[in-house]
Design a protein around this nucleic acid. Structure first.
Lengths: 134, 134
DNA sequence: TATTGTTATACTCTATAACTATA
DNA sequence: TATAGTTATAGAGTATAACAATA
């Protein structure tokens, strides 16, 4: 119970801070984090982040404008556009993830191993794996 | 750990849903919930919700336009405006709270007593008591 | 001078609806 | 017809800066 009160909000809050440290909003950070697992179609990304497809256009537009992702036409279905992390995007995504793992605020009383497991769990809840479209 | 993964997001998510069921955004719901404990100055509300004071103006404007809160000049300090729930505002705030306590999604495995304690805890974390200004 | 609250401005997120190009 | 993605539009949250009234 104690653990819970300490942890609630910490992940969301820390994530927002971690993303902000790279001059990104939480949504942009989430998209980048989801893309760490590989390319994903716009539609899949929107599903992952449970937002309307039109939102993804804007979010990805801003990330693309900053050179963190790029769009690539789908091979089999030419309607599809797959979003891919650029090397710089990978760097930023990794930086966010690293910051998440070294931010202990409010989780000090957890052992390193538990905290690691905890973050893995939260990360999974936070960004479900998008389904890449071939 | 299980409990945590289940509970994370549930409170925020359920709260957003509960607020939406009253046609309110999460921020509006939070302000209303904070005001359940009594009147609060704009500044105190902004501190509670950790947002800029200028945001509170807009949020309270919208709540006031719908008759859920009203502004009242501070007695001792005439710069201050205290925000107060109207009877309708109280009804809506209570409805949100009631909905939060009857929404079990993802918390089924918790006993009623535990769930009650859990929500009390989360509610405290979610909306710290604002400091009313006399 | 410092503080409270507001206004003006700008950016982002969000959803809905209408559109295109594919399938 | 249905789907993927975009555009246009509108409402809400957010922060910064400038301002009036008060302390």
């Amino acid at each position: 119970m104690e653990l819970l009160s300490v942890s609630l909000g910490v992940y969301y809050g820390d994530f927002t801070i971690a993303a902000a440290s790279e001059n990104l909003t939480a949504s942009q950070g989430r998209a980048l984090t989801a893309l760490r697992r590989g390319p994903a179609a716009m539609r899949a990304l929107a599903d992952t982040m449970t937002c309307d497809a039109s939102n993804m256009t804007g979010i990805i537009d801003r990330l693309e404008k900053r050179g963190l992702v790029r769009r690539e036409a789908g091979a089999s279905d030419r309607r599809v556009k797959n979003v891919i992390l650029t090397p710089e995007g990978e760097r930023v995504a990794d930086a966010i993830r690293a910051k998440m793992h070294t931010t202990h605020d409010g989780l000090d009383r957890l052992g390193a191993e538990d905290r690691c497991a905890l973050y893995a769990l939260l990360e999974r809840v936070f960004t479900t794996a998008p389904t890449p479209t071939p």
